[in-house]
Nucleic acid binder design. Structure first.
Lengths: 251, 251
DNA sequence: CGTGTTCTTGATGCCTTTCAAAAAGGGTGG
DNA sequence: CCACCCTTTTTGAAAGGCATCAAGAACACG
């Protein structure tokens, strides 16, 4: 059912990386980009539904998500699962797993995914030779933490509708920053089970609340795309303040 | 009611830091410790109940918590508050706040607190001159993220009793690693309101569940100290609880 | 020994979960 | 192109965990 991994060469060199061109990312010096390119030996392809990093894995590599969506998750012994956060193109994949000795969480490809590999052996190299990049690694780690903070606040304090609104706005803004939003609509590949696991709600209640908000005109879905009909209202509903997203580093 | 900040010189130089002596911490070269000492100009004292870093603050410094407890939190517009994680001696305070442009969260002193100041201006210095320390900063950031992952999993998936058990075990283990546990008991300065904010539960329900677990013999409190009467049971309760007691088919 | 904070307890209601099962899609092979 | 199977989504009904309201008890402190 699940296709195995597939490895290969990137379609384009990092210097011409289409992701890097996007305004969401900070500019880098040619020297830095060359260092990155020299370090990233290969592309890795992972099929939707497959683990990129297994829970407990001890030799996880560091990646940059080149295309597709993924999510980090944690499972309890009896099968309950919490999705911790979602990963979109440009996000680091496996920083925590590659720094700590064993991964306390799993990372699964939500869609088919393309990864740029940053061998864990060379992370130390990067700290020695390219402090500017090391700093950006730490920066990206802090940014991820801040996303998790937001999710924890959602799950701990918001009711079902507010949680959905908060998640929608967050994903919408991140997709928008990547230029993935057209006319308020973007590819939305989550199943409701995944939604439920991310929101800390049961599947049934998620479905009912989701349907209610859709019927209320908050958003519409068709062909795997979600259209946020009223982003301002959605943000208000989540009691989130819109913050300008500043450009972030891409490794 | 709240005493203002107070600044002063540390009682002892970093080379003789009593915290550093503890087995919980890795050894460092004298050179590294000297670098640290040269960077940490001053001690800062913050009274219990006072913010160490305000929500939205843009010029937050980086600290190491030298003594006392603190917590990171996030508030919603209507006053709801989520405590994200607790900070114990040796933890970095304000890493996220000092790397990102504005702090998305607040950090409050839970008890009177002593901080070693690491001026944010010199963080970059550290990445350039001391890559080993920079790496450890990133490592500590990942460790904090992993603690938050665990809290998010608790709040999203565990019921009230399990959440309390999970929090108790986590704090117990961290305190133990610092040598703060004697005979299964340690200083426990949280109010129930703070417990509730950390667990994502109402104050009332927290109080009732807390009392029930105490009466069930899971732990005891007296004189501000908490004694975990059965750590093994508490740990088991945090992930499974009574799921095992389910009747099974007999053929 | 007052006064404000924190903790406890009882009562009521609703948000969310659980159980159950039908409906809707999606993909595959005949 | 339709039959068939498996996954995903939707709905209904009932139970329960947790929130909310209210107020008294226990503490802490000046």
């Amino acid at each position: 059912m699940m296709k195995p991994d597939h490895r290969g060469q990137p379609a384009v060199p990092c210097l011409a990386c289409p992701l890097r061109m996007k305004p969401a990312f900070k500019d880098k010096s040619d020297e830095e980009v060359r260092f990155i390119q020299a370090t990233k030996l290969e592309h890795r392809f992972v099929a939707a539904g497959t683990d990129i990093i297994h829970p407990g894995q001890e030799d996880a590599e560091l990646y940059t998500l080149f295309s597709g969506w993924a999510f980090r998750y944690k499972s309890l012994a009896d099968g309950r699962r919490q999705i911790l956060n979602f990963l979109l193109p440009g996000d680091l994949v496996g920083l925590q797993a590659s720094l700590l000795s064993a991964s306390a969480h799993g990372i699964e490809a939500l869609t088919d995914v393309e990864l740029c590999t940053f061998p864990r052996k060379r992370i130390w190299d990067l700290f020695v030779k390219m402090p500017a990049l090391a700093y950006e690694v730490a920066w990206l780690g802090s940014r991820e933490e801040s996303l998790i903070d937001e999710n924890l606040t959602s799950v701990g304090q918001r009711n079902a509708s507010e949680r959905i609104a908060a998640l929608l706005i967050s994903l919408y803004r991140r997709a928008d920053a990547l230029g993935l939003v057209n006319d308020h609509s973007f590819q939305f590949p989550l199943t409701q089970q995944q939604l439920a696991d991310a929101l800390g709600l049961s599947l049934v209640h998620t479905s009912k609340t989701w349907a209610r908000l859709r019927r209320a005109g908050l958003f519409a879905m068709s062909g795997g795309r979600l259209t946020l009909l009223n982003p301002r209202l959605t943000a208000r509903m989540a009691s989130l303040f819109d913050r300008e997203l500043e450009p972030r580093p891409l490794l």
